[in-house]
Design a protein around this nucleic acid. Structure first.
Lengths: 259, 259
DNA sequence: AATTGCCATTGGTCGGGCCATCTGATAATC
DNA sequence: GATTATCAGATGGCCCGACCAATGGCAATT
């Protein structure tokens, strides 16, 4: 009897425009919620097709998505084997943190620990390589960010755009890609709801952006870097509704290893 | 006439075990090599099926993979639209750097600029949270790394395992995932060939690991961090065959923005 | 006890068909 | 002439049924 826990899990009939997307997300969440563990096998495609109430083709397309996420490996004649989560794509960190409407605060903190370091250095590089044209674009976004007539989420979008702009200024494509993944993560629906609920506001950013611009124009790069770093930190804090780059919590000290 | 460059591109019949994988990689490379640009459309599925000489099902499965990489977006009734590369998954950085057997040294340097920062901080966190059991495992890998009877690539694998171990020691799952993606990238075939060609050797690492362990056991965490950082830097250098975390080249200063 | 060969299971591929949606051209209207 | 409504073709999404190919376990054999 393979994976007995699994047999009882009920999959709902897909409702999205694209069936395989819906199926892929349900299977993804089933794995992230540990209904299937590393080494377990997913039910056979034919059975999944029956349980989801869709054709096997759609199941297979969903499996392809899971495979490219590194969540499973399909082996002909054997089955679809679940991989350890730590081996999966970084693209899954978002869904891992925000699954089923809840926020995994522990993982979010771990994420912040890494991200804060990356953004910290990105700010330095950006100020170092900044040019006049960038400054103009920065000011445009700053104005949008400060416009009180805009809905909250649009101003947050402007804040995220500033983060992406900073990455673009560095001229480093890897930072550019990282910033965009981060932007998408911060734009996710669960976080939007959190911001709505907590009545969060991105306006504290405005002053920091201003003083950063001032410092650049005054020829004080070091101060500009400091302000920009502060701005990115505040952006993170106000977007997720909790301190960003905090000290290490005791729970972090527990050793977490792949199984 | 949509994307005229593309018409002449000849796809070879897939040869791998799994057709859709082969197809996905060929299409991926076609996009990475700029045969299709952002906004362009891929040929219709039915035409791709004909040109690859496979069934449309396999093409569709390949497209699903491209979609989950963020390389394309398929829209019913319209077509398959190529996305800007900067919007794609970080998983593509590997193939972007090592495509068609060549190494994109510019992008590799940009990658190094980001990665060196991440590893730098990871080393600090690891030493801070290190426990006895970790030290034992570290020594085991160290011995494997130093064993001259082992083939070169196996010793490099031990070096990469040390990097993953360091990430595991931090207890931070994000670092753990990042380190594993990095490990896979450093294990890629083109880099193996490079190491073979340049006769690279991981042995300089051994001394650094030793002195790191010594520093830990002597109760000198700061020195241990410094040694570990040096070790990670050397690991990168010796794995890719070029300086790691170097100064910024002028080419980096050119602004690279998404199109 | 070890080896060999067989077979059910399971993923991989195929061919064909129909539906849903979008785009662009055409026709109708003002 | 400009605008709007309509329609047909193109294209992705999904389904069905069938067969192939690899795997792993079981049974027969040695």
């Amino acid at each position: 009897m393979m994976a007995p826990i699994v047999g009882v899990r009920v999959f709902r009939p897909p409702q999205r425009r694209r069936l395989h997307e819906d199926v892929a997300e349900q299977l993804r969440d089933a794995i992230l919620e540990n209904h299937y563990r590393a080494g377990d096998k997913l039910p056979p495609e034919r059975e999944l097709a029956e349980r989801f109430g869709v054709n096997r083709t759609s199941i297979r397309e969903a499996i392809k998505t899971l495979e490219s996420w590194g969540l499973v490996v399909a082996r002909q004649g054997d089955g679809i084997i679940v991989q350890p989560l730590v081996e999966a794509s970084l693209d899954l960190i978002g869904p891992m943190i925000f699954r089923q409407g809840r926020i995994d605060t522990a993982l979010l903190r771990e994420m912040q620990e890494v991200v804060s370091v990356v953004l910290y250095e990105m700010a330095r590089a950006a100020v170092e390589r900044l040019k006049q044209e960038h400054l103009r674009e920065l000011k445009e976004w700053r104005n949008r960010l400060a416009d009180p007539s805009l809905p909250r989420e649009e101003r947050f979008a402007a804040a995220r755009a500033i983060m992406v702009l900073v990455a673009d200024i560095t001229g480093n494509r890897v930072w550019q890609m990282v910033a965009r993944r981060l932007r998408n993560m911060l734009a996710s629906a669960p976080l939007q709801k959190t911001r709505e609920r907590l009545q969060l506001d991105p306006s504290p950013l405005v002053g920091l952006i201003d003083s950063c611009v001032d410092a650049v124009e005054a020829g004080k790069p070091k101060e500009a870097v400091a302000r920009l770093r502060e701005a990115l930190r505040v952006l993170g804090e106000s977007s997720v509704g909790m301190p960003f780059g905090t000290a290490i919590t005791p729970s972090l000290l527990r050793r977490r290893r792949s199984t």
